[in-house]
Nucleic acid binder design. Structure first.
Length: 573
DNA sequence: ACTAACGATTAT
DNA sequence: ATAATCGTTAGT
């Protein structure tokens, strides 16, 4: 939601008084053009202006139900803009507006796709500053490193420092002072670098680490590049990490000392830091141009690159592959691959399951046809006029039944009929759709698949029991019920119920239910098959990738102890 | 005053 | 169901 209670809404605490400096050049808002922000405000999703709830008669409570809000001016200018409300789940009572929306049809069926095109605004996001506009996490700040996606423990759970709003995020969450200068520098480095796109921040960071660890590319040209991480000797790599940690600690103690000094002094220090960083990071490159690392190339490298051209980079990469790959392939073939064995076993199992699923499918198709022929046969029966079925009817009359859908008391005689209709009534009020039509080859009559242009979805109920898109056909007066009669619940007698279909309360809609039973099972089998196919595909991809170029280049199997080639101990198997 | 941690809420 | 990220709090 784009409306919000501003963080100044609460009584001034320590924190907000600290942040008060943000309001120094207080901007004005709303139709009243006053700088007041100590009350509930709502932002226009078109012009981004903020409005006081009181000035435009929108309460905080109303705003809770609003998903997109547009000010009057914008709405007057552009007719297509209308305030959108969120569909309510277990929220408080429906608002008047919401109900209107509902009556107009299925209100929210994935029609709202404005995310991404617009920056969201909230209590902690002004939506306008650079950090708010940023969409990528920097992957290097402490918050990023904490994130699961960057392999962190997810303990801090704050968003990337570079994405903390300049205006509204808490100060302590924004970019830290001592890191700020470095990041800024990197930013500008990237901006005027010719190959700026090839260097993202992560790579820059790696680059810095690498420099910090004291390697010199010229001694080890093979190990000089960004993507070389995995090739580093583990010992060397460890040392690199250590160096980095030391640096961290130094930084910390430096900061502690500084806390005793004046603020002014601190800023001076910051400046010095910046100079220091730039010297270390870039100084040499900008003065003496480096030579391109391309094989036998004598050109100068392009700024921010190690090569004079893409071509040289590619050549070097190709050479690298020629050099390393044959050795890797040999290594690969030397040791048995357990994952490969397991994969094969898994594939076998999957295939067996596929086999049985297919058999089950044929069986279900057979039953499908069988049922259809039974139904055809049943229709040929003649209604038996005289025998008005009244077994047990008399003593049922004082029994009371309540409909499971509407909870009204109903006559047991018509209970089935009523409940079926009642259920259909409610069921047809909801939609059950998917974006895609069903495409199953060789399958007849499974899903309803009626297209709903409003929600752009296809109905995914079973066709035979979709009350929304198919009415039960009107029963002609002379039609027979025709339900196959059974003995002991399951054993068919070969006879059919010969009561008039309109009058038979016992077997109401029996064809529909029997068809649904079969179809449901067919759907299940199809799902199972689908799942198995996917599994098979996954296993296959894994197996192909395992000995693929990339994997061979990136990983290798090290046999730490030649005596135990196969690390599986006997008890494992 | 500050940070790490974490439950809770919201978005996807 | 999971990811993102907010507000709160205990600990330093």
């Amino acid at each position: 939601m784009d409306s919000e209670v501003s963080d100044f809404d609460q009584p001034m605490g320590i924190e907000s008084s600290l942040e008060g400096e943000n309001g120094e050049n207080a901007p004005v808002y709303c139709i009243c053009r006053k700088p007041d922000i100590n009350c509930f405000m709502i932002g226009c999703d078109n012009c981004n202006e903020w409005f006081h709830g009181d000035c435009i008669n929108v309460t905080e409570k109303m705003a809770k139900a609003i998903r997109e809000w547009y000010c009057e001016k914008c709405r007057r200018k552009d007719d297509s803009l209308e305030i959108k409300y969120r569909p309510k789940k277990t929220r408080e009572k429906e608002t008047e507006q919401e109900r209107l929306e509902k009556q107009r049809g299925t209100p929210d069926f994935k029609t709202d796709r404005r995310r991404g095109s617009r920056i969201k605004r909230s209590a902690r996001m002004c939506g306008e500053c650079e950090p708010c506009r940023r969409t990528e996490d920097c992957a290097q700040c402490d918050f990023c490193k904490d994130m699961k996606k960057f392999g962190g423990p997810n303990k801090i759970r704050q968003k990337c420092r570079l994405r903390q709003c300049e205006v509204r995020a808490r100060k302590m969450l924004r970019v830290r002072d001592e890191e700020f200068s470095m990041m800024k520098e990197q930013d500008s480095l990237q901006r005027d670098g010719q190959l700026s796109d090839d260097y993202d921040e992560q790579e820059m960071e790696l680059y810095h680490q690498y420099r910090a660890a004291g390697y010199d590319d010229h001694n080890m040209p093979w190990l000089s590049d960004e993507e070389d991480g995995p090739f580093l000797d583990p010992v060397l790599r460890k040392r690199a990490v250590k160096v980095k940690h030391v640096k961290r600690r130094e930084k910390k103690s430096e900061k502690k000392k500084e806390e005793y000094k004046s603020r002014r002094h601190k800023q001076k220090q910051k400046h010095r830091d910046r100079v220091k960083h730039s010297e270390r990071g870039e100084g040499r490159d900008s003065v003496g141009l480096r030579q391109c690392l391309g094989p036998s190339c004598v050109e100068a490298a392009r700024p921010n690159s190690k090569y004079c051209s893409e071509d040289c980079g590619m050549k070097l990469a190709a050479n690298r592959i020629y050099e390393i790959l044959p050795q890797r392939i040999q290594q690969w073939q030397q040791s048995p691959c357990i994952a490969e064995e397991q994969g094969k076993k898994l594939l076998e199992r999957i295939r067996r399951e596929q086999q049985s699923a297919r058999m089950r499918l044929t069986e279900m198709e057979r039953r499908f046809h069988e049922l259809e022929s039974i139904i055809i046969k049943a229709k040929q029966q003649v209604v038996q006029q005289d025998e008005e079925v009244n077994e047990g009817d008399s003593d049922d009359t004082d029994l009371q039944i309540f409909c499971v859908s509407c909870s009204h008391p109903i006559n047991p005689k018509v209970a089935l009929r009523h409940m079926e209709r009642c259920y259909a009534k409610y069921e047809s009020q909801t939609s059950f759709g998917s974006m895609y039509p069903t495409r199953i080859e060789g399958a007849t009559r499974l899903f309803c698949d009626v297209y709903n242009p409003q929600s752009k979805t296809y109905c995914k109920r079973l066709q035979v029991l979709c009350p929304e898109h198919s009415r039960d056909p009107k029963v002609p007066a002379d039609e027979v019920c025709g339900c196959p009669l059974v003995r002991d619940v399951f054993e068919p007698t070969g006879e059919f119920c010969r009561v008039s279909k309109r009058k038979c309360n016992k077997h109401y809609c029996w064809e529909k239910l029997r068809r649904a039973e079969v179809d449901l099972e067919r759907v299940r089998v199809w799902y199972k098959l689908d799942e198995l196919f996917e599994q098979e595909r996954n296993v296959r991809t894994a197996m192909t990738n395992r000995a693929g170029l990339l994997a061979l280049m990136l990983h290798q199997t090290i046999q730490h102890d030649p005596l135990t080639t196969d690390l599986r101990s006997s008890k494992d198997r």
